[in-house]
Simulated assay, not measured.
Amino acid sequence: MGLKGKLTAQVEIKAGGDVFHDLFRYKPQQITNMSPTTIQGCDLHQGEWGTVGSFYFWKYTHDGKQKVAKDVIEAIDEEKRSVTFKVVEGDLMELYKSFKGGFHVETDGDIDLVTWYLEYEKLNDDVEDPLTFLGFCIKLAKDIESHHLKAA
Rank of each mutant, 00 (worst) to 15 (best):
N33C: 07
G101R: 09
G90D: 05
V72W: 01
L44Q: 05
E48N: 13
P36N: 06
Y120P: 01
A15C: 15
Y96C: 07
K122W: 02
K86T: 14
R25M: 09
W58M: 01
V68C: 02
E78F: 05
Q30G: 01
T84K: 11
L118K: 02
L123P: 01
G5V: 10
D22I: 10
F99R: 01
W49D: 05
Y96M: 06
T37K: 03
G41D: 08
K65D: 06
D43K: 15
V68N: 01
I76N: 03
A75H: 14
H104S: 10
V19D: 01
E121K: 07
K27A: 13
M93G: 03
W49G: 07
G53F: 04
S54M: 10
T61G: 00
F103M: 10
L44G: 08
Q29H: 13
V87Q: 08
V68M: 03
Y26M: 12
D63I: 11
G109V: 13
W49Q: 10
H104W: 03
S98D: 09
H45Y: 09
Q46R: 11
Q40A: 10
Y120G: 02
C42N: 09
L123A: 08
G109I: 12
Y56W: 08
K67I: 09
I13Q: 04
R81K: 15
V87A: 12
V72G: 06
H21I: 05
Y120H: 02
A69F: 00
Q66P: 04
K67S: 15
K14L: 09
Y56K: 12
F57G: 08
G41N: 11
N33W: 00
W116T: 12
Q10D: 11
W116G: 07
F24G: 04
F99S: 07
H21M: 05
A15E: 02
E74M: 13
D110W: 07
D110Q: 14
F57R: 14
S82L: 06
G109Y: 05
D77V: 13
F85E: 05
D43E: 15
G101N: 14
T32Y: 00
Y117E: 12
P28T: 11
G90R: 06
E48V: 14
S82R: 10
F103N: 06
T8K: 13
G17H: 05
E119L: 05
V88A: 01
T61I: 14
A9Q: 10
V11E: 06
I111G: 03
L113Y: 12
E79V: 14
S82W: 05
L7V: 15
D18R: 12
Y60G: 02
D18I: 14
V87Y: 00
G41S: 11
